[in-house]
Amino acid sequence: MNIFRLTGDLSHLAAIIILLLKIWKSRSCAGISGKSQVLFALVFTTRYLDLLTSFISLYNTTMKVIYIGCSYATVYLIYMKLKATYDGNHDTFRVEFLIVPVGGLAFLVNHDFSPLEILWTFSIYLESVAILPQLFMISKTGEAETITTHYLFFLGLYRALYLINWIWRFYFEGFFDMIAIVAGVVQTILYCDFFYLYVTKVLKGKKLSLPA
């Protein structure tokens, strides 16, 4: 464990908690893409099946359980409890255009052709594009609530910190995972546009509205 991975995990946890609290306290999921949240629940489900097969550390197990629990709770709030506030008309990204290519790629490019490894690879690839429905929704509505931008900031920051963690681990441990790194770079690049708007607008107290 290194400081970059730890702050990355805490940033990820902060994003997940911010979103869940925002929806729960405001009793509304307006502006939130339910499709992205379903994709994240799928990412965690396919990645953390090893909860059933191996124990790595209390930290590892605890965080995985929290991530899975919060992501399913968020999906539940959006599609069941607070369904009336779900803005389906703007959440129209065709997720099948993500899942099918990602699923195919996971079969073609992986470290080992075993079920757990294929699912892990699918999860890594899917996570890199899972935010697209949310970013697409913001571009359609033309704006985002400030709390939603904080959620996106921490979510984008987490994988950027993981990139530094992988540089650190390559340098000090000779460890690297090309699949995770390439997907992580793609994932972080997708946030660059948002990061620019977040820094130039939200951090100056303005509302995030598009076109910029």
């Binding site: 790595i56 590892n60 991530y67 470290h111 000779g174 460890f175 690297f176 090309m178």
Partner: peptide, 10 residues
Amino acid sequence: AFRQMEKDEL
């Protein structure tokens, strides 16, 4: 090592 055998990252 090409990849850590143990998946110790989240």
